[in-house]
Design a protein around this nucleic acid. Sequence first.
RNA 1: GCCGAAGUGGUGGAACAGGCAGACACGCAGGAUUUAGGUUCCUGUGCCCCCGGGCGUGCGGGUUCGACUCCCGCCUUCGGCACCA
Length: 841
Amino acid sequence: MSSEQRETPTADAAGRESSYDVKAVEARWQSVWQDLEPFRADDEAVRTGAKEKRYALTMFPYPSGDLHMGHAEVIALHDVVARYWWQRGYEVLNPMGWDSFGLPAENAAIRNDAHPADYTYGNIATQFDSFRKYAASFDWSRRFNTSDPDYYRWTQWLFNRFHEKGLAYRKNSPVNWCPQDQTVLANEQVLADGTCDRCGAEVTKRELTQWYFRTTDYAQELLDSLDVLQPTWPDKVINAQRNWIGRSEGAHVDFVVQGRDEPITVYTTRPDTIFGTTFMVVAVDSALADELVTDEHREAFEAYRAEIRKASDIDRLATDRPKTGVDLGVTATNPVTGAQIPVWATDYVLADYGTGAVMGVPGGDQRDWEFATVMGLPIVRTTRPPADFDGEAYAGEGETINSPAAGVDSPLDINGMSVDDAKRATIDFLEARGTGRGAVNFRLRDWLLSRQRYWGCPIPIVHCEKDGEVRIPDDQLPLELPELRGSDLKPKGTSPLGAATEWVETTCPTCGGPARRDTDTMDTFVDSSWYFFRYVSPHDDTQAFDTDLANLWGPIDLYVGGSEHAVLHLLYSRFFTKALRDMGLVDWDEPFSAYLAQGKVINNGRKMSKSLGNGVSLGDQLEEFGVDAVRLTLVFASPPEDDIDWADVSPAGSLKFLQRAWRLSGDVTSEPGAAPSTGDQTLRRVTHKTLHEAAQLVEGHRFNVMVARTMELVNATRKVIDSGAGGSDPAVREAVEAVAIMLSLVAPYTAEEMWERLGHQPTVARVGWPEVDESLLVEESVVAVVQVKGKVRARLDVAPDISEADLEAAALADETVQRALDGATVRKVIVRAPKLVNIVV
RNA sequence: GCCGAAGUGGUGGAACAGGCAGACACGCAGGAUUUAGGUUCCUGUGCCCCCGGGCGUGCGGGUUCGACUCCCGCCUUCGGCACCA
């Protein structure tokens, strides 16, 4: 087998070793690093100001099995930055742990008649070994699992704080229900096509009393601070969050309804179109519709409502269905025209957005136009469309008309105004009259956090007949999960915890009377919404986290993870941070100062999957090419945010390069510390320029280009050894040491091996970035390009400080330039010394 | 439909405060070393060509001495939102 040969050191014609034994090198350095612990973060170094901090974080994994290609990619990319920061002299906090509550463990336990912990902690042990073999620079002394009582005790403690502040509450409401997983889901966990983001089952609705976090309290701030994050977060994540929060500006307008004391308030973004309101529509499944309908119309209404309820969510999501509805038999008064308009119920109005009632303006809204057309309701335009407009409803800019229409008497007149002016005038009018007001609406809903499953954090609430919802006192936490296993965990639509009678039946902490525990567990996104706080004091058994240390280390300077969490985890964590700040537990507003969304690893143009049979095993790749080659391949393949198609890359090529770089270290014959200033100046220029550029490239997250520059330095050094001054030149040593240090960010084993062969002590990971000699960054001579009519005709070697006049003269004197000019009259010469001359004829 | 991002050789990708398009690799072709090669090294490699050159960064215009880069209009792909009033 050839891979065996690859592992065996071989020799070239000159008898020198031409490759190293990948397996032996890996085994050896792992134990050295475990003794040295080079990446242990020191609180004191930061507290005393001795070193500047950097907090590097990559999303902790769910322990679903061993690490896979996706993990390998994030860690490879993330590690470049974390290791770079160490080399630049920062004190780096780069922790790792496990997001270890969750459904796969529970489903496995049911299948195997086991406990979810068996699966969970077995996989954690496997992943831990793999992480270390993969040479990830994590501070392992800080690791924890969110399913440990030591951790979830503090998740519960935080829940108590949210509950105290009214940020955690229960309400009865129609909720998303996954029939496959037998649990409710948050809005964020239902995909755009109405399916469950975990299992793909079609999500249905249920009316249930559930726990919520009041994320909507922070809607405006969550939106506003996206502006601050914009420069350092990917556009697509900012955009996704903006869309998700979905702010709109408009007005609430009160419509007096006959036979009802309270007016009905509608929300509209176009108060300027109020004169065109010819009917009102309310959501068919709202309490309001049920209350308004007259006896005469009730039968038709209930028949319609039953029909709508039968339709699946998938059908309801289709936007191209014909409009349907029923007349409720009541009328409302248009507050500006006094006209009586009919009130209808329909399914195109959503019960849980705005007020669940809408003013029907068919002239200005396409949906209302369609409804009016089907139902035979009048249509009035209130904005003048452009002359060439041939659509139906017109929602664009234009002059306000028919407001009021000729012959209509109204205390408000907005005719002739632009849309914006008419909006403002209408709101002012309504506010003065007390029948309306400017309003802001958000699409964002409160976060539904209860789950009807076992393997999650228990909600620390007791329900007492006398005292109601009672928090379990902090000093009685953690409330541990009861021991359930195997078939006890089978989903049955209510939480499995309910079956643990002895656990459920308890006494009220307030009155001591009989009470029942809450049987739901928390969404696992709650666990991950604060884990980055816990890392600053992971073993503290007196508090969730140390506020001083959190303020010292935080916020996270770079967060690396997949964009599948663009809304979910990132939004929840941002909400938690703001809430904890308001509780005085931390002083930062945003958890992640910069965010890098890495691409996926795919194969042959498609997502890797078992059903397609195109999966690439990380273990196999590591076995065949070694850790360094796999890491290098992932870093070099593309910009970090792009997907990597494994079919397009070459781990064999990466290994070849690493061996080539390693061979350089065997050719160096000068002693450590040899003064490079006496060596080859051309090579020195390349070395220093590369170090300078590589640093900037890492800081700009352009890791693939940084690798390319390292390759160029290797090529240049090879050339000097083979055809120039040879391996004894101290400039060669300087270059090879630079290569080892740059490689320490990407290929830690090879770098370590090189460093040792260069006569140094481990570890190369902490030797520091070499100082760049600025004087070597200035070029001795540059190539000036001479263009004639914009086309390159000649290249001249010139001094970097050549004057414009001299450069122009040199260009015009050039023979090929003269030939290209062919006697034509020179009209103009543009000179950009020292790089370019363009001759215009 | 609305919002956002991106289109460069056979492939992954470089180069954009407007100034040498294709760095660095993969692949391919040829050569050297080798008993051998999934080894190592060297050379070539955008397309066309009458060998002087011509054409080339999704398409069509524009600004400029000069455009992959800026502006206008399209096309395609990907991502988010979507009967959200």
